[in-house]
Write a protein that binds this DNA or RNA. Structure first.
Lengths: 158, 158
DNA sequence: CGAGTTAGTGGGTCGGGGCCCACTATAGGG
DNA sequence: CCCTATAGTGGGCCCCGACCCACTAACTCG
């Protein structure tokens, strides 16, 4: 009983470790940073990947739709799309039906890039989630997904 | 089979939702932002809470130790400690054994503040984790903690 | 045709967080 | 007593990411 656990000098305060909020914030920051680093190697940022993914998953669409979907600022999206276009990852064409709109679509090169980025992301994931086994990772993914989607517990195979 | 699921216009790309990395980054950002907002109401930032927690959990210590523990930049800590001191939440005294060092300790007011901040953090937590039930939250907390501590899976009750 | 609205763009701002350097004061070892 | 290392401090820099405004082009409605 008397033996105090030798607290390592770099241990974080239990008060904080006990807060899921804190852990989420901290781990999320790490994940974000690593992911961003991965992208930075190619001169890309997080939005670039998000835009590519949205286009790959939902098909060509106007910037306006991407804005809605991703919650990105229209002005910022314009810059991202511009850059992706210049690099040949997306194509931008005036919508003939409504010539205000710019329809964006992913190119073959864009899809290829996205696949590589995904692979990179999974590598990062393996590093970050190293302490967890496969089953645990699946549980974590499921929980996080539910949190993200805001779906109540009683959905799914309750 | 032919009935396509009507995808809401603000649904995120499945490609991203499938990455725990992405979910962690995104949810973590939310958690961080809300927590920061909570603190901002009192003119505080995240480091302030971290420092208070470290002092409350581990007792008075030199800034140098806080630097090690929290991974904060010494220069930044100086500013944080200064501000907390001015507000009466911590006390700073020259270490008589080594007069280079400044020993920092929480005051009663500091402890009280920390308790309030903790309560606020738990409120945020309830909002963020609303989709999860109590048991699921416990599982999530456990998984996150393991990730944070870098503990391998085979620890604990297999 | 005009008025109001929407899509996209360019440019700029603001705040946070991390980081680094120069400097002082003190300690400790030859 | 010097020389080096360490603790703390002040100031400043830089990189975001988010946000906002002004402006143009184009559509819609009456």
């Amino acid at each position: 009983m008397a033996s105090e656990i030798p607290v390592p000098p770099d241990a974080l305060p239990p008060t904080l470790l006990d807060l899921s909020t804190f852990l989420l914030a901290r781990i999320g920051r790490t994940a974000r940073a690593r992911l961003a680093g991965q992208l930075a190697e190619r001169g890309l940022r997080l939005w670039d990947m998000a835009v590519l993914a949205a286009l790959a998953d939902f098909g060509p669409q106007a910037q306006r739709d991407l804005v809605r979907r991703l919650g990105i600022d229209p002005s910022d999206l314009a810059k991202v799309a511009d850059q992706l276009g210049a690099a040949g990852y997306v194509e931008r064409t005036r919508d003939q039906a409504d010539r205000r709109r710019v329809s964006v679509s992913v190119t073959a090169a864009g899809r290829e890039l996205l696949a590589e980025l995904e692979a990179g992301a999974r590598t990062v994931q393996d590093e970050v989630l190293a302490p967890l086994g496969p089953a645990e990772r699946r549980v974590l993914q499921e929980l996080l997904l539910r949190v993200e989607l805001g779906a109540p517990s009683w959905r799914g195979a309750g």
